[in-house]
Simulated assay, not measured.
Amino acid sequence: MATPVRHMQEPSVWQKCKMGALMGGGVGLTIGFIFGSYSILRNGAGPRGFLATLSQYMISSAATFSFFLAIGSVIRNEGDIPPHLQPLSMQFASPLVRSRYEGAMRMRARWEAEKARQQSADS
């Protein structure tokens, strides 16, 4: 009995944004702890005290990293453009980008034809 093939679904834009924000928050907290601790050891805790100063470093660093990684993870979209949006994207692309895209599509078509030829030769 054949097992059904499961296709993984690509995460949505919102899921990518949340994932980037969470990763950025973790990195930001760590970096804020390191630099905040160094700053406190070097310059002293200041009038607010050790914990308030360190938490300010950590929260501001986490917010900054979180913001930029959330945006960056949405911008860096590795998925293909949906078929219904490809003509629109090609309309606004520069001629250089368009020629590269067309070349890549021709190369992909040649690879598919070669795969089909090899499969028919093997059969």
Rank of each mutant, 00 (worst) to 15 (best):
I34W: 09
T53C: 01
Q56F: 11
A45F: 01
G25I: 01
P47F: 10
L54G: 09
M58A: 05
T30E: 00
G46V: 02
I31R: 05
F33A: 15
L54K: 06
G32I: 01
R48P: 06
G28K: 01
F35L: 13
F33E: 09
I59W: 06
F50V: 03
T30N: 00
G36Y: 08
Y38R: 04
G44K: 04
P47E: 15
A52Q: 14
Y57E: 08
N43H: 12
M58N: 05
L29P: 05
Q56G: 15
T53M: 05
I31A: 05
F33V: 01
N43T: 05
G28D: 03
G46D: 10
L51Y: 12
G46P: 00
F50S: 01
G32H: 05
G28L: 03
F50H: 13
G36R: 08
I40Y: 11
I31P: 01
P47I: 10
S55R: 11
G25T: 13
S55H: 04
R42H: 13
I59E: 02
A52S: 12
I34M: 15
L29K: 00
G28N: 09
I34G: 14
I40H: 10
M58Y: 00
L54S: 07
I40N: 07
G36A: 10
S39I: 01
R42W: 11
T53R: 09
S39V: 04
G28Q: 06
A45P: 03
G44M: 04
N43Q: 06
G25E: 02
R42Y: 12
I59L: 14
L29I: 05
L54Q: 02
S39E: 08
Y38E: 06
G25R: 05
G28V: 00
G25M: 14
T30W: 03
G26A: 13
I59P: 02
G49L: 10
G25A: 13
I34V: 15
S39C: 06
G49T: 13
R42A: 13
R42T: 14
Q56M: 14
S55Q: 14
G32F: 04
I59G: 00
I40K: 11
F35M: 09
T53S: 07
